[in-house]
Each structure stands twice: as structure tokens, then as C-alpha cells.
Design a protein around this nucleic acid. Structure first.
Lengths: 137, 137
DNA sequence: TTAAGCGGTGCAATGGTATTGCAAAGTTAT
DNA sequence: ATAACTTTGCAATACCATTGCACCGCTTAA
């Protein structure tokens, strides 16, 4: 557990019980989670507290928000190297049409695209939908 | 107006007054619109009717749905060549951090990405955020 | 001509997620 | 122990998406 505490304090987050639990949960998950999922699977706590916990994590560069096209916001741990304020996650997110889970593909980088004249890119988000490795037996 | 009627009947959509109005509105818009925007700007009508109108358009391959990361679903006319059920819009969508509008970039195609072993891609959606041409004076 | 059937529209109502306000509980420094 | 600050939980609110149902107008069959 010292491990988790360190992760939090490294990001200047006060390691409270709630936050350690949430971080532990996120660490063990392979897929991105919605708030509702977290709420259901972590009996321990209130939705709003989770909401704020995740928000804190996001602001400190510990998790990133994923809009996977379902309309429901999901979250996943950042790889190392995200800063408060600015995330530099440029990996693809994959939504499985079969199991409905959203996964980060940290090795798969979003290619640069050439925009029309005068457009300036600042961030980009690529969602690929299809059948994930686990479902593609 | 015959023009608009034809567009509808070409897609097997019954050209009612409401639908002609909605199509006209969409045709004149350069940016993608949310339901709420349509509701406000087209005084003529009820939100639910618009909702169903857009849904019909979408099902018949006349408009496509855009999840631009704001959490609010937006819609824009398809270029030609979309079929009921399957849209093949592979263009990039651009969200302007300044004016908050979302634009289709029909000339800018989403590049193919190489996925990890065993993942099968079916659709892809790329949102680029930044400053649009109009705001980038 | 009337009655039945049907697509389309509008209103009311519901469900779900995101978000804020506020007060209680917990923590830290003096 | 107290004051100051942080964190948490509950209640409440604000939207957006979606469904149910009744009504309207049109076409079709008796």
C-alpha cells in the first residue's frame, strides 16, 4: 500500500483512505471505468465523493478522461508523464462493440493529421470501435 | 424548396413540413448542431419532434451523429454516399476551443491505425481540438 | 360519407449523468 | 484544545436523452 501512497504524494495528492481505495481500484482495472461502475463495484462510498476524487486525480495528472462516444464519461489511469493541467496522452482508445468496454491502447499513437489551412491543432482524440482481443476468440 | 424535397425522398423520407424545415436549417449551418441549439434557433417546434426528425435523418443516412467530447451529441449533414444503417464518414471532426463549434473536415480523412494483435477495427472517430480557421485571425 | 388505419407531431413524464451547496467529520498546526 | 483547512456525505438541482400516449390530418376501404 505504500506503493499507492507514493503514487498519490508524487502527484501532490493527499493520500486519504478514499483516494487510496479509488487508486487501488483503478490500478486493478484493465478497462476504463465510468463513475457509475465505480460506484457499484466499490460499495464503500458515495457517488459524489468518487466524482470529486476522480476530478482531483484528473487535475493532478493521474487519470485521464475518455469520451468514447457512448456519451458516458470514462476514466483510466494515465501512463507516467502526465502533468497537472496538461495531459499528453496521445494513445488510441478502443471501444469494443461486443463487450462494450473501452481500453487504452498505450502503444498505439494517434497519427498526426494535416488540417486545412489556418486550423491549429492542440489536442486529438481517436476512438476506434470494433472487436477487442478478448472478444475476438 | 423542390431541392430539399428531393433530398428527402431520395432517402425514402416522407417530406413533411417539419422535416423540410429541419433539413433547410441543417443545410444552411456550417457547424454541427446540438438538439438544444436547433430547438432554440428554430422556434417553430418541439424538442421531441426535432429529436425524432434527426433520428429519422440519421437512420436514413442523411445526417451523422458526432460525439465531440463535450458530452453533448451533435449532428451534421452527411456528404453524399451514406447509407441507411451504415455511415461511412471517415472524416475528422474539429472542435474549436475558442468558439466551441464543431466542424466537419470532409477532406481530412482519418488515417488507418495499426492495432495490437487480434483487435479488429470496424469504425473510427477522430476529434481534433484547437483553434479553427475563423478564430485563428 | 364515414370509419379505420397510419404516419407524424406535441405534451407530459421518466431515467440517468453531471454538478453544486452545505453541513458534518476528520486532519493538522499552534 | 482550538482554530483553520481539507475531505466526505447527503440533498438538491440542472440538463440531456428517451419513451408513452393522445391528437391531428390524410389516405383507403366499406
Amino acid at each position: 500500500m505504500k506503493e499507492l501512497e507514493k503514487k498519490l504524494s508524487d502527484k501532490q495528492i493527499n493520500p486519504t483512505a478514499m483516494r487510496l481505495l479509488a487508486l487501488d481500484y483503478l490500478t486493478k482495472r484493465s478497462a476504463a471505468v465510468s463513475l457509475t461502475e465505480m460506484e457499484l463495484e466499490m460499495d464503500r462510498s458515495d457517488r459524489v465523493t468518487l466524482y470529486r476524487t476522480i476530478k482531483t486525480f484528473e487535475e493532478h495528472g493521474l487519470v485521464h478522461r475518455i469520451e468514447d462516444g457512448t456519451g458516458i464519461t470514462k476514466f483510466a489511469l494515465c501512463q507516467q508523464g502526465c502533468d497537472p493541467g496538461h495531459h499528453h496522452d496521445l494513445h488510441v482508445h478502443f471501444f469494443c462493440n461486443s463487450c462494450k468496454e473501452t481500453h487504452c491502447l498505450p502503444k498505439t499513437i494517434i497519427p498526426e493529421v494535416v488540417l486545412p489551412e489556418a486550423y491549429q491543432a492542440q489536442e486529438r482524440e481517436l476512438i476506434v470501435k470494433g472487436i477487442c482481443a478478448a472478444c475476438a476468440v
